[in-house]
Design a protein around this nucleic acid. Structure first.
Lengths: 203, 203
DNA sequence: GCCTTACAGTTTACGCTGTCAACCTGGAAT
DNA sequence: ATTCCAGGTTGACAGCGTAAACTGTAAGGC
């Protein structure tokens, strides 16, 4: 066989149209409004035609998730290459993460707030690449691998808690939003750099 | 009309059986497995009979959510009345919150991880009472109302980020779980008591 | 003792979901 | 001219929440 390795996303016109409509629907009405029949009728084909271009509805969603991760990675990696102390950079990166979540809540929702157990398996390689930006949290701590990973997870989960509760509108709206975000990011940075108990009595 | 105020939950046998089966199904197979038809067939009635006892499927879920909040409140309030410094108490309360989430993930999921926008409105009074335990975070800071509320929100969102990502199995399993929890709780306490930027230049 | 009313449950149905098997159809290759 | 096939459609299945209409049964009034 010839060595021409063909891309596994043939990018036919209909496939593009389906993706575009899925994007539009997701952004305008959210994940809950994404149904194969709605996409199909907006695009002018039948629901089953979607399965000629995507293995399942989940894999269509994954294409959107990938786009979301592309944007998140772009934002985070760009900011992470700025100048300043590690603390400054971590603050900027954290803000970039939070901004992404609040500016693109529908993407954040499918990326981080969907029950993944009951979706079909996200391709492993894609998963690694997708979460590139999350590793930045760990790297910026400049600590040994194991502790860095833990600190990174703490930063991420702190930011994720904030973003997901804000998106779900579960945080008292009378709170000053920007002060909350500012303080949360500061607190997340403390989680990255302050002395924490488990570092003391473990190798 | 007579002053006899009747309870709004008549507690008929069938209603109890439906609730019991919903609990069982939730705990054994999770929220996604909860369907009116499954509950009905397990209980030995038809799906529509559920609507004789619950206004909607959502209101049945709310009954389960209430039970979850009852348990969370019980655990948190009990711990919050222990002895020790405010920091000690906050640590204990935070651990109680995390333990609840990890021991009862299905309840945590319906209480905090469901997209509430698209469920019918949770009764306002129930909502207030339900989230009693979350106010404990703010109270333990012993700060003026506004700042206490912000600090409480930071603690909550930090813990929620940790719990929700652990439940969703999105955190690298090679991480030492108990060290992560210990450090996260410590970090959350820093978020409650450490100097944070927004307190400095605001009234 | 009969009729009415109310309740508690069932039957049936509607419109929605993701997905599969079978079918069709136009154009390129033999 | 015939065959093959990629790319689409039709129709169907099993499941979902829920509304409307129907049925059986028990209690209360005459």
């Amino acid at each position: 066989m010839p060595p021409s390795r063909q891309t596994r996303d043939p990018a036919t016109p209909l496939r593009e149209a389906i993706l575009q409509e899925a994007r539009t629907l997701l952004e305008s009405e959210g994940y809950a409004a994404l149904s194969t029949r709605r996409i199909a009728s907006a695009v002018g084909c039948t629901a089953t035609s979607i399965y000629l271009h995507f293995k399942s509805k989940d894999s269509l969603i994954y294409a959107l998730i990938d786009e979301g991760f592309d944007e998140l990675n772009r934002r985070v990696l760009e900011v992470s290459q700025g100048e300043g102390t590690a603390l400054d950079l971590l603050r900027d990166v954290a803000l970039a993460y939070v901004d992404f979540g609040l500016e693109r809540p529908e993407y954040y929702e499918i990326m981080f707030m969907l029950r993944a157990e009951q979706m079909e398996r996200y391709p492993v390689d894609a998963y690694r690449r997708a979460r590139r930006s999350l590793e930045v949290f760990a790297e910026l701590t400049a600590l040994p691998a194991e502790e860095a990973a833990r600190r990174g997870a703490i930063v991420w989960s702190t930011l994720h808690g904030l973003v997901s509760l804000l998106i779900a509108q579960r945080i008292d709206i009378s709170l000053d939003r920007s002060a909350l975000i500012e303080d949360s990011i500061h607190s997340a940075c403390l989680g990255a750099f302050a002395a924490l108990p488990s570092g003391a009595n473990r190798t």
